[in-house]
């Protein structure tokens, strides 16, 4: 039986078509055949199959999570769809052409954060609807670039070592101070004795 689900947000409409097996009562979407995503303000919509849906689910919510945490990754994640922030309110979505039946190698969409939030919300609603949660997990420490770059961390160390070397070179050329002989101490003054009072 053919099933169609639609998730309509102000800036994004996600439409999923698929087949359900008759044994499940005809309600459960078992096989996804078509995935369509229309974003308001974009001239071309995205249309593909299950591969497009899986690629969207793998990349877009993960990118939203990374942006929410504000961390910078050491290297960009190897996902089929690349999500890249360009400036404050610009996000580029680079989709391989074969996922959307396009002759071009890459299809690139420029979204605002509001449009991306609606796309994420549509995907979340789809996942909640089909009783399969997207796989959330926190990023490991090794995936995160250090907050202070290594060069910046090493700068104070380098300056310290260089100044130590310079000062050592200066002090090396200074003569070793000679020890002065002890000056003879003056003889203690003789104490005047008071004459006895004539009594």
């Amino acid at each position: 039986m053919l099933l169609q689900r639609q998730y309509r947000l102000p800036n994004c409409t996600l439409r999923i078509e698929g087949l359900s097996s008759p044994h499940q009562g005809g309600e459960q979407l078992d096989v996804v055949t078509v995935c369509e995503c229309d974003i308001v303000g974009q001239s071309t919509g995205l249309k593909g199959g299950k591969e497009l849906l899986v690629a969207l689910l793998n990349s877009v919510p993960a990118a939203a999570q990374t942006w929410l945490s504000g961390v910078k990754l050491r290297r960009s994640p190897q996902r089929e769809i690349q999500v890249e922030a360009q400036g404050f309110n610009q996000v580029a979505l680079r989709i391989p052409g074969h996922l959307v039946d396009s002759p071009q190698e890459w299809v690139e969409l420029h979204l605002t954060w509001l449009q991306l939030a609606d796309l994420v919300e549509a995907l979340d609603q789809f996942c909640s609807d089909s009783q399969t949660l997207p796989t959330f997990q926190s990023l490991p420490r090794r995936a995160i670039a250090p907050a202070v770059p290594l060069r910046q961390q090493l700068t104070p160390l380098g300056i310290g070592a260089a100044s130590l070397a310079v000062m050592a070179a200066i002090f090396f050329h200074l003569p070793v101070p000679e020890r002065r002989p002890d000056e003879p101490t003056p003889a203690p003054l003789q104490q005047q004795t008071t004459p006895p009072s004539p009594n």
Partner: peptide, 17 residues
């Protein structure tokens, strides 16, 4: 959003696990 609670919770520990 619908999964905002989970998304925020997991994002808090990005780079900590």
């Amino acid at each position: 959003g619908t999964k905002g609670l989970e998304r925020l919770w997991f994002s808090l520990f990005d780079g900590e696990v």
